[in-house]
């Protein structure tokens, strides 16, 4: 399943005094099985872009294609579309509303019109995916849980629709390191199992270790895209887009400047460690 944006432009409050272009001629393709990280400073249009992926917002001009079909065209079933492209908003725990965890997670699958057995199976699977204990938590009120648990329930609510493409808007915002690692671990697993993932993130460190491709937005325009290794090399462009680069990449560049013979495109802590350990071995020998 591939998602394609063709020359998508989106203007808020078109025609009024408050008119503002949030997206400006964005074209990009998200292929099956990719892990795409969508990065950019606040107000660059990331959140607007993700809402185009499941038809919550319609482009002012341009098209969004799912497997070649215009998602805003005639005869498209919106519910089916939103089930295929699951969108997890920022702070999703603020959308919980049901009396029990089970009922809340079941909301999506029920809207799909699935049988009670199937809904139950999906609730179980989704809870497994987000590492929540079914027997212990399923009848609890979601409002009694901890912040991190609530977020996982909310994500399970989207996973239960078994989307082909999972879009997450800053899923770790506001979480402590433990909560963050849990969510990221879970997203990594889902990607490994074959789900296509699009993740909006502010943390270049998280992006570095997860994404297969990065899409960089700046002021509503596509600044660059490519594998993290390629993107993190473009330091100036990243700085212009108001973005940091991983510390490992910074160290690599600082060391090269001091005459340490390293490849210039290292950005992962582990690979940098390997290179440095190797150099140390050679230096001692």
């Amino acid at each position: 399943m591939s998602l394609e944006l063709k020359h998508v432009t989106y203007t808020y409050s078109a025609g009024s005094a408050f008119q503002a272009t949030a997206l400006d001629d964005i074209s990009l393709t998200i292929e099956d099985g990719e892990f795409v990280a969508l990065v950019g400073h606040t107000g660059c249009g990331k959140s607007t872009l993700v809402q185009h992926l499941n038809g919550l917002l319609k482009p002012t001009s341009g098209q969004v294609l799912l497997d070649g079909q215009d998602i805003n065209g005639e005869g498209i079933n919106r519910r089916e579309l939103r089930q295929k492209v699951g969108l997890v908003f920022q702070y999703p725990e603020y959308q919980l509303f049901e009396e029990t965890v089970a009922k809340d997670i079941a909301f999506g699958p029920k809207n799909q019109g699935l049988s009670a057995d199937e809904v139950d199976r999906r609730v179980r699977r989704a809870m497994e995916h987000v590492h929540l204990n079914y027997d212990k938590l399923v009848e609890r009120s979601p409002f009694e849980l901890s912040g991190g648990q609530m977020r996982r329930v909310a994500i399970a609510g989207v996973l239960a629709m078994e989307p082909k493409v999972l879009v997450l808007d800053e899923p770790t915002a506001g979480l402590d390191p433990r909560g963050r690692d849990r969510i990221l671990g879970m997203v990594r697993e889902l990607h490994r199992e074959g789900t296509t993932v699009v993740m909006v993130s502010h943390s270049m460190e998280d992006v570095a270790s997860l994404a297969t491709r990065m899409v960089v937005l700046s002021h509503g325009r596509l600044a660059t895209q490519g594998a993290p290794r390629e993107v993190f090399k473009q330091r100036e462009l990243m700085a212009e887009a108001g973005l940091d680069i991983p510390e490992a990449a910074k160290l690599c560049q600082a060391l090269i400047a001091r005459g340490v013979p390293l490849p210039e495109d290292l950005y992962l802590q582990d690979e940098l460690r390997e290179h440095l350990a190797q150099l140390w071995k050679e230096a001692r020998a």
Binding site: G86, L87, Q95, F107, G108
Partner: peptide, 26 residues
């Protein structure tokens, strides 16, 4: 919140008055 529930298949626009009132719960 409305958009988030729509992303989970909620429908705020169609149906009779009772169905719409119920749809407001989420």
């Amino acid at each position: 919140i409305m958009k988030a529930q729509m992303a989970r298949g909620a429908d705020f626009e169609t149906g009779n008055l009772l169905a719409r009132a119920k749809a407001m719960v989420p």
